[in-house]
Amino acid sequence: MLNGGCYCGAVRFEVDDAFLYAFYCHCSRCRRRTGAACAAIGGIEIDKVRIAEGRDQLLKVDESEDGYRCLCKRCFSPMVDVIREHRFAHVQLGTLSGAPARRPDHHIYVGSKAAWHSITDALPQFEELPP
């Protein structure tokens, strides 16, 4: 079990340490959402993510039939994206207090990565999504 939460501590969540996949995303949307060169994301079934504190402090944005993004209403930290018809979640790995067993093992959207950022590891890189 891993614990996570927002910057101000108003929202806390638990997630099973059972990520199906993990990656670094370099798309321009993730850069703008996180303010970083890329986002570190872990994918998991939605029923393995539980809000422990601050459910009333969750702000759902970009809602659609497919899913939504969860931010803290107070500090606006991005935490979890509910995706694929509300069946899966993309957890921002930087919100976790511990290290997940599954680490990011590839980079996506490197075709649009920040010009000032160099990828220095040997992980596979994909211009967009893996085949």
Results as ranks from 00 to 15, higher is better:
residue 1 M to K: 14
residue 2 L to K: 10
residue 2 L to Q: 08
residue 3 N to D: 12
residue 4 G to V: 15
residue 5 G to S: 13
residue 5 G to H: 04
residue 6 C to Y: 13
residue 6 C to E: 11
residue 6 C to P: 10
residue 7 Y to L: 12
residue 9 G to I: 08
residue 9 G to E: 07
residue 10 A to E: 03
residue 10 A to K: 06
residue 11 V to D: 05
residue 11 V to Y: 07
residue 12 R to S: 11
residue 14 E to D: 13
residue 14 E to R: 12
residue 15 V to M: 09
residue 16 D to P: 10
residue 17 D to F: 12
residue 18 A to R: 13
residue 19 F to N: 07
residue 19 F to P: 00
residue 19 F to T: 02
residue 21 Y to D: 01
residue 24 Y to S: 08
residue 25 C to L: 04
residue 26 H to N: 14
residue 27 C to A: 00
residue 28 S to G: 07
residue 28 S to H: 08
residue 28 S to Y: 04
residue 29 R to A: 06
residue 30 C to W: 00
residue 31 R to S: 06
residue 33 R to T: 13
residue 33 R to M: 02
residue 35 G to Y: 00
residue 35 G to K: 03
residue 39 A to C: 00
residue 39 A to R: 02
residue 39 A to W: 01
residue 40 A to F: 01
residue 41 I to T: 01
residue 42 G to E: 15
residue 42 G to Q: 14
residue 43 G to S: 11
residue 45 E to N: 11
residue 46 I to C: 09
residue 47 D to T: 15
residue 48 K to N: 11
residue 48 K to F: 11
residue 50 R to W: 01
residue 52 A to W: 03
residue 53 E to T: 03
residue 55 R to C: 05
residue 55 R to H: 09
residue 59 L to K: 15
residue 59 L to Q: 15
residue 62 D to N: 13
residue 63 E to R: 05
residue 64 S to D: 05
residue 67 G to Q: 08
residue 69 R to T: 03
residue 69 R to K: 07
residue 69 R to Q: 03
residue 70 C to P: 01
residue 71 L to F: 13
residue 72 C to W: 08
residue 73 K to C: 12
residue 74 R to Y: 08
residue 75 C to W: 04
residue 75 C to I: 09
residue 76 F to V: 04
residue 76 F to Y: 08
residue 76 F to C: 09
residue 78 P to G: 11
residue 79 M to T: 10
residue 79 M to R: 11
residue 79 M to F: 09
residue 80 V to S: 08
residue 81 D to T: 02
residue 82 V to R: 07
residue 85 E to W: 05
residue 87 R to V: 06
residue 87 R to P: 00
residue 88 F to M: 10
residue 89 A to V: 01
residue 90 H to W: 12
residue 91 V to Y: 05
residue 91 V to S: 08
residue 92 Q to C: 05
residue 92 Q to N: 08
residue 92 Q to V: 01
residue 93 L to C: 08
residue 93 L to F: 04
residue 93 L to N: 02
residue 94 G to A: 01
residue 94 G to P: 10
residue 96 L to N: 14
residue 97 S to Q: 14
residue 98 G to I: 13
residue 99 A to R: 13
residue 99 A to S: 15
residue 100 P to N: 07
residue 101 A to N: 15
residue 103 R to V: 13
residue 103 R to M: 15
residue 104 P to E: 07
residue 106 H to K: 11
residue 111 G to H: 03
residue 112 S to E: 14
residue 113 K to D: 00
residue 113 K to Q: 00
residue 114 A to L: 14
residue 115 A to Y: 07
residue 116 W to C: 00
residue 116 W to H: 09
residue 116 W to F: 10
residue 117 H to G: 14
residue 117 H to Y: 06
residue 117 H to I: 06
residue 118 S to D: 10
residue 118 S to W: 02
residue 118 S to Q: 08
residue 118 S to H: 06
residue 120 T to A: 14
residue 121 D to S: 10
residue 122 A to L: 12
residue 123 L to P: 00
residue 123 L to K: 09
residue 125 Q to G: 11
residue 127 E to I: 03
residue 128 E to Y: 06
residue 130 P to W: 03
residue 130 P to R: 05
residue 131 P to V: 12
